[in-house]
Write a protein that binds this DNA or RNA. Structure first.
Length: 580
DNA sequence: TAGAATCGCCAC
DNA sequence: AAACGTGGCGATTCTA
């Protein structure tokens, strides 16, 4: 291990590192938030030497060679969760990390959805190299005088990455995951940029929204409490004041309903929904639940996530958030903000700026058409007609213009349900028809789209036979369902149908995210949010229309790579707030 | 009593 | 007494 303390030593180290194909790269920082913490150490490893650069004791104006090395596409930087390091480099030194091999993402891909595998550097090194690493220094104080053992720890982290990459590369090749790995590695910079930028939330707007909800909630709670207590035994005023029903407790609600003569097995929404018309108290309960959810999940606590330095919300994105490759988002989960206007209008563009909200239209149905090669479905998309209307026409063998609103709505339910492996009962529930009618509809659907029927059957069979599935780019999900268990077999078939579609959607979307992020370089525009098939960009208002066209065309081009036989449509809007 | 498990519900 | 997929999160209830 060599501690670099002078520009001369740095030049020599860079010369050696630059000659490599791969170098290990890691950083130590004084904290986890790039906006509030400092970069302390940069650690590099070549095949035979490791270097540490202490940024607290090195002239800042002599750093350029190392920044150039990091920004260059060669050598490839091997890092564990490179997004983290990339954010600090972008924030404090204004550079984008060049080509990376991310051992964290590689490990996730190789695990193929196995939830028991952990993916920190320590467990990954243990799993693939049989090396025991002591990570206890990770949380040590990296802001003061560093001890020799801290430096050794730091160097070791970078050193292990090269042998780890070799092993992971072997596995990726073996499992034919290199294409999807490349896709993921290429997406790291876009993810880093998005997290670092964050999204602006108008706090006053949000507070007003919460206050309004709170008032409605109080009213609904009081009314519901009164109605539910009607069946309770007579109580003194004191008892009434102290022993009220906990409206958030399914158990207590069930008991209270029972006293009113309404017997229910469970108080879940789908079960209560049909009873709401018959019993006003149930409608009241559902109303209360909506407001309660709104206050707890989308209440003032969201404001706690506003970063004091930037004034914006920097959610944590997980690039591979599920076995299908969809991203995950936490702290807060910006993926589950309701789309009612009073919530989303608070996510805004600051003064002088605009948001471009762009999403792929019906992308999973298009993927189904492409993968299944179903002639009628392909034709439906290529005709440019409304998909659900065309589906209804195909199912009922009637001309397009004769399709009624109700028929279209049922066809829509089928189109969405089918990609989740839905059965007759599920469909019946969803579009409010009898199970018999639902069975008939599904039969008609498969008669209209026989290629889809064949593809779905094959996907389910393959899932049961091989207990795994792949996307167009080869992303793998090894299922842990037990096919001898009846229920799990059902789930296995449904996931077998859905995973290739949803997963290919992820592949396609990530290609788009990377491409859009690349195209926005050098412009006053930045991706600030991603939700499965939607990209939100914040930019200077003067260039917003141009950016919208750029984002849209870039997304379509990325989509076309996956869907050569189907038109790809993107709805892109320039707005002041996160609204469509 | 703290953490795990479950319920219920938001997104795509 | 559900079973159309993927997730996260807050409140309640269970468990040791």
């Amino acid at each position: 291990m060599e501690l670099i303390t002078t520009p001369d030593e740095l030049r020599a180290a860079i010369a050696e590192l630059a000659a490599e194909t791969f170098i290990g790269f890691d950083t130590e920082t004084t904290g986890l938030d790039p906006h509030r913490s400092q970069l302390r150490l940069l650690q590099f490893a070549s095949r035979n030497q490791s270097y540490i650069l202490d940024l607290f004791h090195f002239p800042p104006d002599a750093l350029q060679p190392v920044l150039d090395l990091l920004a260059a596409s060669q050598p490839i930087k091997v890092a564990h969760n490179a997004k983290f390091d990339a954010e600090f480099l972008r924030k404090h030194h204004g550079i984008r990390l060049g080509m990376v091999f991310d051992t964290y993402l590689a490990s996730l891909l190789i695990s193929a959805g196995n939830e028991s595998d952990r993916h920190g550097l320590e467990p990954v090194a243990a799993r693939y190299l049989n090396v025991e690493m002591d990570k206890s220094f990770q949380v040590s104080d990296w802001s003061g005088q560093l001890t020799e053992s801290q430096l050794e720890y730091a160097a070791r982290d970078a050193q292990i990455l090269l042998p780890l990459r070799e092993k992971l590369q072997e596995k990726l090749d073996e499992l034919e995951l290199m294409q999807v790995a490349k896709l993921e590695f290429d997406c790291v910079n876009a993810m880093a940029g998005m997290e670092l930028a964050g999204i602006y939330l108008d706090a006053d707007c949000w507070r007003a929204q919460v206050a309004q909800t709170k008032a409605a909630y109080d009213q609904a709670a009081a009314k519901l409490q009164k109605e539910l207590s009607a069946g309770a035994p007579q109580m003194s005023l004191f008892e009434e004041a102290t022993s009220s029903i906990n409206l958030d407790s399914p158990t207590q609600i069930r008991e209270a309903l029972g006293r009113l003569g309404i017997k229910v097995e469970s108080t879940s929404e789908w079960r209560l929904h049909n009873l709401a018309r018959e019993h006003p108290v149930i409608a009241l309960l559902l109303d209360y639940r909506g407001l309660s959810k709104s206050l707890s999940a989308y209440g003032l606590s969201l404001l706690d996530h506003i970063n004091p330095v930037t004034g914006r919300i920097h959610a944590s994105f997980r690039q591979i958030g599920s076995p299908t490759g969809r991203m995950g988002c936490t702290s807060p989960s910006l993926h589950q903000i309701p789309h009612e206007k009073h919530y989303r209008q608070c996510f805004r563009a600051p003064a002088g700026r605009k948001l471009v909200v762009a999403d792929f239209s019906q992308i999973e149905m298009r993927i189904l058409a492409e993968m299944s090669n179903d002639e009628a479905l392909l034709a439906a998309f290529n005709s440019g007609e409304d998909l659900h209307r065309a589906t209804a026409a195909n199912m009922l063998n009637v001309p397009l213009e004769e399709v009624t609103t109700e028929q279209r709505s049922k066809a829509k339910g089928l189109n969405y349900g089918i990609i989740y492996g839905m059965g007759a009962e599920g469909l019946a529930n969803r579009i409010s028809v009898s199970t018999t009618e639902a069975e008939g509809l599904i039969q008609r659907y498969f008669a209209a789209y026989p290629g889809v029927a064949r593809w779905l059957q094959n996907a389910a069979d393959t899932a049961v036979r091989e207990r795994r599935s792949r996307t167009m780019l080869g992303r793998l999900w090894a299922f842990s369902f037990d096919p001898t268990d009846r229920q799990q077999l059902g789930a296995l078939k449904r996931v077998g149908k859905n995973a290739p579609i949803q997963g290919t959607g992820s592949d396609l979307f990530k290609r788009a995210v990377k491409a859009v992020d690349d195209r926005l370089q050098g412009q006053d525009a930045q991706i600030v949010h991603c939700i499965h098939d939607e990209i939100v960009v914040e930019c200077d208002e003067v260039i917003a229309e141009k950016i919208a066209r750029l984002v849209s065309s870039t997304m379509i081009k990325a989509g076309k790579e996956f869907l050569p036989r189907i038109p790809v449509e993107v709805d892109a809007k320039v707005t002041d707030a996160w609204l469509k």
